[in-house]
């Protein structure tokens, strides 16, 4: 499933950008780090023989969703907001527990991975062209497809309602 060197390279970039997003005090920087993360994941998709999904990832995730995020950050003036830095007692406990849980999670996963005896040989390459994907989508997943359409409609309506203001003339 790909060249190990490329994998490691990309993995480093992905994890690095993730940690950057996590720790950055500037919201815009965080968003940009996330865009980088998404792009890397997109490349991973290409490596994993999912070209269409990669395109969708770049277009929708990195291109639409992150842009939306950046819009909102600009709108709220969050690039000027600094993160709150007071660390009181409750916060410490909170952080400790979170860290502990994350460690447990990593540990558990590592355990699982090293213990599993599942075969690791990949299956032969598939036809993953958009045509094939489209056929699979519309052959077996028509109903979820339609429901997703409804979901998008609902979210549009929801956004519209949330965006309404009571006062006239004032902008959103």
């Amino acid at each position: 499933m790909g060249n190990p060197i490329i994998f490691l390279l990309l993995a480093v970039v992905a994890i690095g950008s993730a940690i950057g997003m996590l720790t950055s005090q500037n919201a815009v920087h965080s968003a940009l780090y996330l865009v980088l993360n998404f792009a890397t994941i997109g490349i991973f998709y290409i490596v994993l023989n999912a070209p269409f999904i990669a395109m969708v990832q770049i277009t929708v995730y990195a291109g639409a969703i992150m842009v939306l995020f950046l819009f909102v950050i600009m709108l709220l003036g969050a690039e000027q907001l600094r993160g709150v830095t007071d660390v009181h007692g409750g916060e410490r406990v909170h952080r400790a527990v979170a860290g502990l849980l994350a460690a447990v999670l990593l540990l558990a996963s590592a355990l699982l991975l090293f213990q599993s005896e599942a075969p690791t040989t990949a299956a032969p390459m598939l036809d993953t062209s958009p045509t094939a994907l489209g056929l699979r989508l519309f052959a077996g997943y028509v109903f979820p497809f339609e429901v997703t359409g409804l979901l998008l409609l609902a979210s549009m309506i929801g956004v519209f309602i949330f965006g309404k203001t009571k006062k006239r003339g004032k902008d959103a």
Binding site: M1, P4, L48, T120, A122
Partner: peptide, 8 residues
């Protein structure tokens, strides 16, 4: 080899 474990 890059196996599925790496990706997981």
């Amino acid at each position: 080899e890059v196996t599925i474990d790496w990706y997981i």
